[in-house]
């Protein structure tokens, strides 16, 4: 998995529908019309992932300010996700790329075959379903949210040029 292998800006974001609870699925197309942030991460409970998701949850209003929906994605099962999200009081859905394992991560070019987990890749997808920004963090490095927020800022600016938006939905 190399930096150049993940989907780059301009690419069409592959559609998916993944379980977020034992009986509920979320699809990328459910959010059509608003920006979506996909945060692929290796594993629930691991120290770096826990910090990353806890920070995103704490600053969830920064995403909402841009009308964006944040989705966390790993190969963990839904029951694991539920326990993790409850323990860390996460304010956004975690999707389970569990079966076929890593299929969605593979379609975004961020599946780590050697480790059998999602790479720590971030994607900002615009309201039309195109990748606006992407980033693959080096192993063990927590990327924070600065890159995501800068990309969302750029999206807000470019979309407000022809047709100014009065306040974002949250």
């Amino acid at each position: 998995m190399e930096l150049s292998s993940i989907l780059q800006p301009g690419a069409r974001a592959p559609e998916f529908a993944l379980k977020t609870t034992p009986d509920q699925k979320l699809a990328l197309s459910d959010f059509r019309g608003k920006p979506v942030v996909l945060a692929f991460y290796p594993a629930d409970w691991s120290p770096v992932c826990s910090d990353q998701m806890a920070v995103y949850s704490q600053i969830i209003d920064e995403f909402r300010r841009h009308g964006a929906q944040l989705l966390g994605i790993s190969c963990d099962g839904v029951w694991c996700h539920l326990a993790f999200a409850r323990d860390r009081k996460l304010a956004f859905p975690l999707l389970s790329d569990f079966e076929p394992k890593g299929d969605v991560a593979r379609s975004y070019g961020c599946y780590d075959d050697a480790a059998g987990v999602c790479g720590r890749a971030l994607f900002v997808i615009d309201g039309a379903g195109k990748v606006a920004w992407s980033y693959l963090a080096p192993v063990g490095i927590n990327p924070g949210a600065d890159g995501i927020l800068a990309a969302l800022e750029d999206l807000s600016e470019s979309s407000s040029r022809p047709r100014p938006q009065q306040g974002d939905r949250s």
């Binding site: 990353q52 600053i59 920064e62 490095i141 924070g144 949210a145 600065d146 927020l149």
Partner: peptide, 24 residues
């Protein structure tokens, strides 16, 4: 402060910045 942390790339606590650059 939280907003500053968000746009600066705070990645958990503590996160340190040395002369303005995030310490990895």
């Amino acid at each position: 402060d939280l907003h500053s942390g968000a746009i600066s790339g705070v990645a958990g606590t503590p996160t340190f910045f040395i002369n303005g650059i995030r310490h990895e």
